[in-house]
C-alpha cells in the first residue's frame, strides 16, 4: 500500500511543481484586455454560463444507468467461477435483457435522437 501512496503523492507534487514553475517563471505584464474572456475576438455579449441543450443532460442520465449496469455486472467472472456457472450466466442474462429493453424503450421514445 505504501508504494502506491508514495506514487500518488509523488505525481501530485510533481504536477504542483510544474504548475508553480509555469506560473512563476515567465515575466507577467497583464492588462485588462488580456485578462478578459473573449467571443469571436470581441467583448463577451452575455454571461458565459449559458443555458445548454437538455440533450446533454439526458445523455448524462443514460450514462448513469448503463454504467450502473456495468457496475452490477462486474462480479460476473467470479460468479462464473462458482459451482454453477449456468445459473450465474442466466442471472446476468436477465440483467442484460432488462437493460436492452430499457435501451429499446429509450430508442422508441426518441431519447437518442440528436437532430430532428
Amino acid at each position: 500500500m505504501t508504494p502506491l501512496i508514495i506514487f500518488f503523492l509523488f505525481s501530485l507534487i510533481l504536477c504542483i511543481i510544474l504548475s508553480i514553475v509555469g506560473h512563476r517563471l515567465p515575466t507577467r505584464s497583464l492588462n485588462l484586455e488580456k485578462l478578459s474572456p473573449y467571443e469571436c475576438g470581441f467583448e463577451p455579449h452575455t454571461s458565459a454560463r449559458l443555458p445548454f441543450s437538455l440533450r446533454f443532460f439526458l445523455i448524462a442520465i443514460l450514462f448513469l444507468l448503463f454504467d450502473l449496469e456495468i457496475a452490477l455486472l462486474l462480479p460476473l467472472p467470479s460468479a462464473l467461477a462458482s459451482l454453477n456457472p449456468t445459473l450465474s450466466f442466466l442471472l446476468a442474462f436477465i440483467v442484460l435483457a432488462i437493460l436492452t429493453l430499457g435501451l429499446i424503450y429509450e430508442w422508441v421514445q426518441g431519447g437518442l435522437e440528436w437532430a430532428e
Partner: peptide, 10 residues
C-alpha cells in the same frame, strides 16, 4: 513554460 500564463479575470 516561459510563456505568460493567463487567468481570465472572470
Amino acid at each position: 513554460f516561459i510563456k505568460e500564463p493567463i487567468k481570465p479575470s472572470s
